[in-house]
Amino acid sequence: MGLNRYADHAVAHKSPLLNAMTHGVMNGGKRVRALAVLAAGELNGAATPALLTVAAALEYIHAYSLIHDDLPCMDDDDLRRGQPTVHVVYGEAQALLAGDALQTLAFSLLASRDVELSANTQIRLIRELARASGAVGMAGGQAIDLYHVGLSLSQTDMQMMHQLKTGALLHASLVMGALCGEGDVNEPIDALNLFAEHLGLLFQVVDDILDASQETAVLGKTAGKDDAANKPTYVRALGLEGARDYAQSLYRSALAALTPYGERAQRLADLAAYCATRVY
């Protein structure tokens, strides 16, 4: 969705950009952010076509962030989802441009006249995604992470960092899905905030556990990279078993946050269960 409209132009100009963008988006992945959009939207009675558009926009932003994270100036990784990273295949310049293009494509999708949402809702979606992916969200969290390589970081500060780096986009996925619905938009957004906070941290803690306990073939990316780079992680702060206990605590808290919704929140509960059980 969205990429196809650029295909003819890219082919006509013999540009490798579309291929680099496609490699970054379509090389597998868990699609957790897209699933969060769909689950929150279903909870609030949203129509599927609009949710799919929003889900695609979130995945484009996530893919752009991974392409840039893997660059030599960032994490310098050669593997992503079991395949060579975009800059390894297409070069650093094309990888940088592919990330830039996916970021702008996400906002183009949300602003499209084809989206079956009110103009006011579209503006709210764009504003939410911009906040979550910018300096007070994902990009800001990544900056803090890079700054603290080799430095100590308290668990409280590390939690704040990951609420920006990982949690902000997951939170936006839930809020944006809810915004697409026909129910009382403020009530589910308020109720989802706590769930989103626990889910975002859970996802990051599990990532740290996997990085420390699984092999490259299982992860699809270089195992032990965070520890080798002396990055602050929950495993480094709490130990492996302590991090596993913390993950289970976050999972229980996430489920508790959904209690007011009852069975209507089953898809969100399933998403939390997936994020928790992939530890093992």
Rank of each mutant, 00 (worst) to 15 (best):
G2T: 10
G2I: 08
Y6S: 13
A7S: 10
H9L: 14
H9C: 08
A10F: 04
V11D: 13
H13M: 02
P16C: 09
L18Q: 03
N19R: 15
H23S: 12
K30L: 12
R31Q: 12
R33Q: 00
L35A: 11
L35K: 11
V37P: 00
L38K: 14
G41T: 04
P49G: 02
L51K: 03
L51M: 15
A55V: 05
A55W: 04
A56P: 06
A56M: 11
A56E: 15
E59N: 03
H62W: 08
S65V: 03
H68I: 00
H68T: 03
L71G: 01
D76V: 03
D77H: 09
D77Q: 13
L79T: 02
L79C: 06
R81K: 00
G82E: 10
P84F: 07
V86G: 09
V86W: 07
H87S: 06
V88I: 14
V89R: 15
E92P: 02
Q94F: 01
A95N: 07
A95P: 09
L96N: 04
A98E: 10
Q103L: 15
A106M: 09
A106N: 05
L110H: 02
R113Q: 15
E116L: 12
E116M: 12
E116R: 06
A119N: 09
T121V: 14
Q122M: 04
Q122G: 07
R124G: 00
R124N: 11
L125I: 10
R127C: 15
A130V: 14
R131E: 15
A132P: 03
S133L: 06
G134H: 05
A135G: 01
V136G: 02
G141T: 04
A143S: 10
D145T: 02
D145R: 02
V149D: 09
L151Y: 12
L151S: 13
S152G: 14
S152H: 12
S152T: 08
S154G: 10
Q155I: 13
M158C: 07
M160Y: 13
M160L: 11
M161Y: 00
M161A: 05
M161C: 13
H162C: 05
Q163S: 11
Q163L: 09
L164C: 09
L164F: 10
T166V: 08
G167A: 06
A168S: 15
S173F: 09
S173C: 13
C180K: 03
G181H: 04
D184L: 00
D184R: 00
V185L: 14
N186Y: 13
E187M: 10
I189G: 01
D190M: 09
L202P: 07
L202Y: 10
F203D: 01
V205S: 02
V205L: 03
V205K: 01
V205Y: 07
V206E: 08
D207R: 03
E215T: 12
E215D: 15
V218E: 09
G220N: 04
T222N: 12
A223P: 11
K231D: 11
P232D: 07
T233A: 08
Y234G: 04
V235G: 05
R236I: 05
G242S: 08
G242F: 05
D245Q: 12
D245A: 12
A247G: 06
S249Q: 14
S249A: 14
L250A: 03
Y251V: 03
R252K: 07
A254K: 13
L255Y: 03
A257Y: 02
L258T: 06
T259H: 12
P260M: 02
G262E: 06
A265R: 07
L268N: 07
D270A: 14
D270M: 06
C275K: 00
R278W: 10
Y280F: 11
